[in-house]
Design a protein around this nucleic acid. Sequence first.
DNA 1: CCAGGACATAGCATCGATGCTATATGTATC
DNA 2: GATACATATAGCATCGATGCTATGTCCTGG
Lengths: 99, 99
Amino acid sequence: MSSRGDWNELRGRRMAEPGAAEAYESTRLAFELGRAVRELRERRGWSQTELAEAASMTQSAIARFEAGGTVPTLPVLERLARALDVELAVGFQARSDAA
Amino acid sequence: MSSRGDWNELRGRRMAEPGAAEAYESTRLAFELGRAVRELRERRGWSQTELAEAASMTQSAIARFEAGGTVPTLPVLERLARALDVELAVGFQARSDAA
DNA sequence: CCAGGACATAGCATCGATGCTATATGTATC
DNA sequence: GATACATATAGCATCGATGCTATGTCCTGG
């Protein structure tokens, strides 16, 4: 069920929108990036609040992001990468058409 | 002189802002992504107008983007990648700290 | 010189992400 | 039960990217 979620529903609705293959991909990306950050954060044993401080953000912003609640912007991704001491990679690749 | 530029100045100012290492990186990224798209587009022999159509955008948006005039959003990058038949890659990597 | 195509900018409306504050749960711990 | 910390959401203000339309400039061809 949607249980305590709400952004979960939002995501679901977004991904279901017809024709918007692009929106679907973005939402998927947002979700994956959120998971990645959560992993990196937990690997460091940091709380959302700690990461928030390190990235000049608020705990709520981190929570929203990790939940895939919004499609992050590059500046934010940069800040998170910096805080987590990793590198943000963005670019185009030859289509592998995996899947 | 700033010649015909203006976004050039904007970029310059942005990248010069002190302390904003994050903003600097984003601007740099925007610039590189713009170049990448321009290359892919020209490689295909497309005009900005043609790419714009393929990506459901306007010529002016493409121009602004290629010039690095703004930091693009993931949805837009997705659309461009799709139009150019390449894959958008976004993620975190171990810091190589090159340079 | 004029017409047409390509690219650069401008100016403004709108949408959506982020910032911020407050709060609701949930889970220990004492 | 009260306290304390972590995470999830809400609601609203603001900022910035994108959409759109209209030009301006440069080139090239007739």
